[in-house]
Design a protein around this nucleic acid. Structure first.
Lengths: 115, 115
DNA sequence: GCCTTATACTTTGCAATACAAAGTATTATG
DNA sequence: CATAATACTTTGTATTGCAAAGTATAAGGC
């Protein structure tokens, strides 16, 4: 990342926390999903995310207890997938995170219109 | 921070990048301001920020070339203050950052209403 | 059967930053 | 002159996005 502008570095930083929220939202909808499917869903929502970012992120969220996880082999064959679902804790956290983002957004609006 | 919940850790992470944007907004309005005044302005906008976060942040933004800086001694006496203003580059970056946040917000909305 | 490709996940190393806590320096007040 | 208030600095820790390389399984062509 040595050749990045300071703005590009800022872009990476500004995604911290945000990506977790997005993943929780995907899993709330899908009930159960796996890495590449989450990735494609985010892509369709206009959010491009690196594999090397997403997989460790899912793993951390699992370790945090926000997700449950299990290996699933598709019944019609195919590559085994590690599926994730929201845990009880994840279900509790999600609205709190949404609220945090709403508050941040409100502070931003205040600051934009500062007199 | 060892006693923090994973949620509290997430809160800290989710402020990365966001704080820079807020500071730029304050300086766009104030034209020129210094640490403690920025801090109080953010406070009034509903954003509590630690001294040990803000000062290094202002310094980094200055080093990035987003801000200009000079020491000012109030004409009526008082403690010398390090004043900051938006640089040309800061003025260019600010709308880009605002746009990034708008896009993020839109992706969030899409993910919230995902069918 | 074997080789290539696609799918899916893992690992490693690096750089950036929010925070807490402690420290420094200057000015004002009693 | 001592204390408090203002204002900024420094240090150490933990976390995380990303790039790049690696591992493993399944499917398809010959």
């Amino acid at each position: 990342m040595e050749n990045s502008t300071t703005y590009q570095k800022w872009l990476a930083q500004s995604r911290k926390g945000y990506l977790e929220l997005c993943v929780l939202l995907v899993l709330r909808q899908k009930k159960s999903s796996y890495g590449l499917e989450v990735l494609q869903t985010l892509e369709r929502a206009g959010l491009s995310i690196n594999e090397g970012t997403l997989y460790p992120l899912l793993n951390r969220m699992f370790k945090n207890g926000w997700l449950t996880s299990q290996w699933v082999t598709p019944s019609d064959g195919g590559h085994p997938r590690r599926h994730y679902e929201l845990s009880e804790e994840g279900l509790v956290l999600l609205p709190q995170m949404i609220d945090t983002y709403k508050n941040n957004q409100e502070s931003l609006e205040i600051l934009k219109e500062l007199k």
